[in-house]
Design a protein around this nucleic acid. Sequence first.
DNA 1: GGCGATTTGGGAAAGCATTCACAAGCGCGT
DNA 2: ACGCGCTTGTGAATGCTTTCCCAAATCGCC
Lengths: 246, 246
Amino acid sequence: MSVQRDPAGADRAPAGSRADAHPAEVARNVPEATVARLATYLRVLTSYAEGAGAIATTVSSDELAVAAGVNSAMLRKDLSFLGSYGIRGVGYDVATLTEEIARTLGLTVHRSVALIGVGNLGLALAGYAGFASRGFRIAALVDADPARVGTSIQGMTVRDIADLERIVDEDNITIAVLTTPASAAQDICDRLVAAGVTSILNFAPVVLTVPSHVDVRKVDLAAELQILSFHENRKAAALLTEAVRA
Amino acid sequence: MSVQRDPAGADRAPAGSRADAHPAEVARNVPEATVARLATYLRVLTSYAEGAGAIATTVSSDELAVAAGVNSAMLRKDLSFLGSYGIRGVGYDVATLTEEIARTLGLTVHRSVALIGVGNLGLALAGYAGFASRGFRIAALVDADPARVGTSIQGMTVRDIADLERIVDEDNITIAVLTTPASAAQDICDRLVAAGVTSILNFAPVVLTVPSHVDVRKVDLAAELQILSFHENRKAAALLTEAVRA
DNA sequence: GGCGATTTGGGAAAGCATTCACAAGCGCGT
DNA sequence: ACGCGCTTGTGAATGCTTTCCCAAATCGCC
């Protein structure tokens, strides 16, 4: 998602930067929609490698597509943006593909993530195993509440929002996860950006305004439910008209 | 269908059901991308109504678009799917538009939501004010862990997953939020569907397989970070080539 | 060494979504 | 009553995604 890419979202790099693909491993310009799916493919591949017994060293686009819940043509096109790592008549080597996707997603480089706002949701995210197991480590927990600052969570000490700039700088934070109340979000966002953060995952229900070099992804939990509600409504209406017709 | 819809996602109703717009308030077939944005518009409108003093009883597509972080032409097109509720030369009446969006999203009907899995994330969601304030009430908390079953959270008693079918039935649950471990997700999903649930918000990092009449939305937190990571990578590469050129 | 079964890669078509651009409608001031 | 400025609603244009489809590549078998 969501873009401020929520559902869709496009902010194009306005400047040229055609990135003429010469310097070895500059990722070709992969479409946004593809990037979002790469993460899924990677997860499936990982589970293949460990889970199912490492028997299958190779996987076909069809198998992988089924496991990832997408059309196999789409999967092949997605992978073709990374280069030609498949073998015709055979499939994709699990290890190679895994590595290639991980590199494209920039997961081979360590990136420090800060979590701002240690309320209920922040707590849950701090302990979320999925982050750790998929290549991310929370490097700092930050909060504004004096009652929380200094306490220890998951072996980390919660630090004071007053020191935000210093924390970003010292720990080389480039990605921040924002779980503050809506009222504080834009303010903290501005400070993060000023301090050098260039990517923000925003759980606060507000639209953040950022300079064009900063990426924001929004996760709006209530919106997700509302979208489901819409479909419930549609289904109910469909049933109704059907009943009327009968 | 049975598409997962993570970032984008389109599943059209394949069958006819042209919904000839006769039966009063059948929602015209609103594009998926639009539905996702309606939730945002609704939030902004609500904050207008309360927050900024109820002075402005009307709002222009430009104002609203800026507040929602989208292009004003897109906003107008989005709203036009609901019907013609604007007044040329003036704008949209805040109250009318709010109501109209809420109705389109099916928020005027009460829907019971069950939360399955009361781990860290589940706990956070149970207490998430955003749900309550935006029209959803958690009607049931369910977990498999005997240590948690029977405990009280947010004034609700955690119930046993063994009673899942009865709970869904008795409380008339149509929407379920899944925050179980990945390994249990598909299994519980199947039981939910069999019991009559038709919409699922899935936080477990697996692709759920469901019949076509069931909607699934996936929220993959680690994937969000990976997408940001990709953009970090791209930005770094852009800087690099720029430096080389100089 | 060649043949058939398989599976990728990618051009081309089809389908959606976003943006542009402007005519049509509305209110206000005169 | 009328014109002017403002703002909606929407056809057309553009751009992005997905799907279709098939030639080219590879393996295993005879």
